[in-house]
Design a protein around this nucleic acid. Structure first.
Lengths: 361, 361
DNA sequence: CTGAAAGCGCTAACAT
DNA sequence: ATGTTAGCGCTTTCAG
């Protein structure tokens, strides 16, 4: 199994290898380019050329090298290669929460896009801990050629400082003003505006907002829009409830939602909306009969709940794949391009309906 | 932004650097240990010792080194380090489908467990393509110290051959008979047995099985149990329907399910079950009034569907974290331990109920 | 077309 | 306690 410390017969006996195996089992240690070269009777340079498909090698030699490599089960060391080439062909992604479907899609999109270009993906999760982010980012960046930071929760100043240490960098759902770090984001404000308009249009006058992680920029965006809308319209009452980002959070808050007397709830995201939906169901409150409810993200489940969820759809996969394009560009020394804000699309399904006066419970 | 090709003033002018900058901007090229050593007026060995917290360095020197490192914004190259140390402190995970919540949890569990031990995670997705798996595995293994293969779809012989090339290796939901490769799996057969017993106990006599990816071992396990149970009990009729593993698959098959006349459906997993649930709902078929339905996995959503889903719960996160323990052991040259099969736990919720004669539609 | 040799940036004997 | 030096395994000039 662990053949790490196995021997390599070399003329030079002064090598400082820690532990040397004496005799015994056949040497299963990793074949190196030197051993292949030796077996094929060529120089290491030639082996290298063959392995990298250089066309300037005599077919006969190439064949011999290939056979030798095969025989030794030769596997070029990516680490040595990276050191020599100065690049790792790996990029990193840092997300606050791997359990969030949104980030899962980003992960997928990024992984696939990078893979098509022969790059691998390193992932790390900060667990919604802003302190961790910078450490993880720096650590990850040391092993890779570029970094994607998804919805970092750290404060602006810190992010700005970090951005210089870890370039090439692409930001998701976060911008650094006056910087050239490419940023891809979802225009949450626009999405919320559509949701509010939809709800107001249905006659709702009292909304509850179930807020997400306080440190999250998307949450602040949503809140700002909601408050502005409410402030500018005397007939629009807004209640804010600290909630979270998970089913459990949404489920646990159902009772409090009912207590507000509101006729519609704007949930931080689809997961929270589901939780609340389920909670209301258990409390016997009909949706949308008595309370309407909206989510955000349009995760796959949203179509399949009962009732199906009205929500704002966002291009989750595209965030990942576009992040790759930007990063790839930066990695070649090209500019990262203009920032973009994806505009969510309102998907009206059956969890929202006309406002009806709430009966007291 | 891209300071890749920046210069390093060195005495030695014979270096084969591709592009050299002449004069101008301050040198933002990555600081190396040599530069830090120079600035601090010590040897590279000392810098190395300081960076790695060796206690045998004079405090005064250590301080000087630290200051120099700070000043140069020195970031030790993990690549060079890996090459010198012979390890990367990285492990890889290959999954068939990143969209599957089951694998997402494995990913999380593994990532967190490995992170606690100072290791990073490389992820790759084979997109349910068995050919890809081996390639990805080998590629990934070259950049990391160990590998976790989650539910590989490749044939036994290939897997066996691969297992030797990529050790240390831990397998999830797959075993190689007579090999020492540690394997962690879910006892799907046992889970299905419980589900069948539950359904039979409710009086159901005709079940439909919505099958998952044909190449998947878990799917074969489920099928084997179902067929055996049906074969051994004349009063138990089984219908098999090719389905898939996603919502969409489950949703699309609802009509076919109704057409079978069965009173209960055993879905490949929770996602399929949801899809079907939703499809039946649209067709106006009451669940569990007319048709009962079971899932598998107990993903977080399962509690929150209407009706909540009867399913078999499996320790998804634990698969990931235990995979780490095994891999970590192997990486230290210790044995990988006994294989384990996690026994699913039947969670009875409201999507299953007593069998009632189906009315014809 | 092939080989020799100098690196890539870091670590760890070994010697001082 | 610190420095010297020989690697880790690969790539890439440069000569031939």
């Amino acid at each position: 199994m662990s053949s790490e410390t196995a021997d390599r017969e070399r003329g030079d006996e002064t090598r400082p290898r820690p532990a040397r195996r004496r005799g015994g089992r056949p040497d299963h240690s990793k074949a190196t380019i030197a051993r292949v070269a030796e077996l094929a009777g060529v120089s290491r340079a030639t082996v290298s050329r063959v392995m990298n498909g250089s066309p300037t090698v005599a077919p006969e030699l190439a064949e011999r090298v290939r056979t030798a490599a095969e025989a030794l089960n030769y596997e070029p060391s990516q680490v040595a290669r990276s050191l020599a080439l100065g690049r790792t062909s790996t990029v990193s992604l840092i997300v606050p929460d791997l359990a969030n479907p949104m980030f899962q899609d980003v992960l997928r999109g990024l992984s696939n896009a990078a893979g098509r270009e022969g790059h691998r993906l390193l992932v790390a999760e900060s667990n919604e801990n802003p302190e961790e982010e910078a450490i993880l980012a720096i650590e990850a960046r040391r092993r890779s050629d570029g970094l994607v930071l998804a919805s970092p929760r750290m404060p602006e100043a810190e992010l700005r400082a970090l951005s210089e240490r870890v370039a090439p960098l692409v930001l998701l759902n976060r911008e650094i003003l006056g910087s050239t770090v490419p940023s891809l984001s979802v225009d949450y404000a626009a999405g919320i505006r559509e949701i509010v308009a939809h709800l107001l249009g249905l006659g709702h006058r009292h909304l509850v907002y179930l807020s997400g992680p306080a440190a999250s920029a998307p949450n602040r965006d949503r809140l700002a829009v909601l408050r502005a809308a409410s402030a500018g319209d005397p007939g629009f009452e807004l209640t804010e409830l600290e909630c979270g980002a998970t089913f459990e959070d949404g489920h646990a808050i159902a009772h409090a939602v009912v207590a507000t007397g509101a006729t519609a709830v704007v949930a931080y995201n689809d997961m929270v909306a589901f939780g609340t939906l389920s909670g209301l169901h258990e409390l016997g409150v009909p949706v949308p009969g008595e309370i309407s409810i909206t989510g955000f993200d349009d995760i796959p489940f949203a179509r399949y709940t009962t009732p199906p969820l009205t929500t704002a759809s966002i291009p989750k996969n595209e965030l990942g794949s576009q992040a790759w394009s930007r990063l790839w560009a930066l990695m070649q020394g090209e500019p990262g391009g203009y920032n973009v804000r994806f505009q969510p699309r309102l998907i009206v399904r059956e969890s929202t309906g006309p406002a009806r006066p709430r009966r007291t419970r």
